[in-house]
Simulated assay, not measured.
Amino acid sequence: MSSFRPQLWTIPEVADTDKQRLPERTTLLEQRLRIIAERFPQAVFASSLAVEDMVITDMICRLQLPIRIITLHTGKLNAETEALIAATNTRYPIKLEVFHPIADDAAEFEQQFGATAMYDRVELRRRCCHIRKIEPLNRALATAPAWLTGQRRSQSDTRSELAFEEHDHARDIAKFNPIFDWEETDVWAYAQANDVPLNDLYRQGYPSIGCEPCTRPVKQGENIRSGRWWWESKDSKECGLHK
């Protein structure tokens, strides 16, 4: 029996060129966040607790901007992700506002379709995402004048056309992607330079982290989001938060 194990993704090495580019990237991020805060006081940053989101959280807190930071506790998070929520609240003065799914809706879904229904059909997976992510986000954004994400263009094919500012037509509010044009190494350069708290799953081969049943490590060289909903085609690999 072969004992070969594929090489898993590892945290990218930050090159000197990445470090040299970081001051310019950091200054631009600061400018973008200040613009958002000035135009939309009490805008909401929806943090997935990914490294990108932790970078933005760090900057919001450094600048003491009037931007609320929320996160979604889906009820299906890894222990490492739950630990990061606690670590973030310890590190920063701005406490995360945690939104949960409606317990009865989540329980009814699992009772009707089973705890592993997300693997059966895309329709059921999206319904699960709606209960655990989209509905709580809708509540979080109910009074928000605008919201922010940590999305980047180079994360996946479905995000290749991202812009700094968009309009969320479903909620009729502005939407911002302040690091839309950052590369993966830019994100890691900032995180390492500023000792940003991070999810320990990154050290276990997880470059993109969501709910525990829907996330797995990826092999070296694979797209960084290939471990999300890996049983689906790449065209369906979004939960609906950004549709």
Rank of each mutant, 00 (worst) to 15 (best):
F4M: 04
F4K: 00
F4R: 01
R5G: 00
I11E: 05
I11T: 05
V14H: 04
A15V: 06
D16H: 10
E24V: 04
E24I: 10
Q31K: 15
R32H: 12
I35H: 12
I35Y: 09
E38K: 13
F40Y: 15
P41E: 08
Q42R: 11
Q42H: 14
D53N: 09
L63C: 02
L63M: 07
Q64R: 12
P66N: 12
R68Q: 14
R68N: 12
I69G: 03
T71A: 13
T71E: 11
K76L: 15
K76S: 06
E82C: 06
T88D: 06
T90F: 03
Y92R: 04
P93H: 13
I94Q: 14
I94Y: 10
I94L: 14
K95H: 12
L96I: 11
E97K: 04
V98Q: 02
V98N: 03
P101T: 04
P101Q: 04
A107E: 14
E110W: 04
M118I: 07
Y119N: 11
V122W: 10
E123V: 12
L124T: 08
R126H: 14
H130P: 01
H130M: 08
R132M: 05
I134F: 06
I134D: 07
L141R: 08
A142H: 10
A144V: 05
A146S: 03
G150M: 05
Q151P: 01
Q151L: 15
R153M: 04
S156W: 10
D157F: 13
D157G: 13
T158H: 15
R159A: 15
S160Y: 14
E161R: 15
E161S: 15
E166S: 14
H167R: 13
R171P: 06
A174P: 02
P178D: 10
D181C: 09
E184C: 06
W188V: 05
A189K: 02
A191S: 10
A193M: 10
V196K: 05
P197G: 03
L198A: 06
L198R: 13
N199G: 01
L201Y: 00
Y202K: 01
Q204Y: 00
G205I: 00
G205A: 00
Y206P: 02
G210S: 05
E212R: 06
E212L: 07
P217A: 00
V218P: 01
K219P: 00
I224W: 01
R225I: 08
R225W: 05
S226W: 01
S226T: 05
S226Q: 13
G227A: 09
R228I: 07
W229F: 15
W230E: 10
G240C: 10
L241D: 09
H242R: 11
H242Y: 15
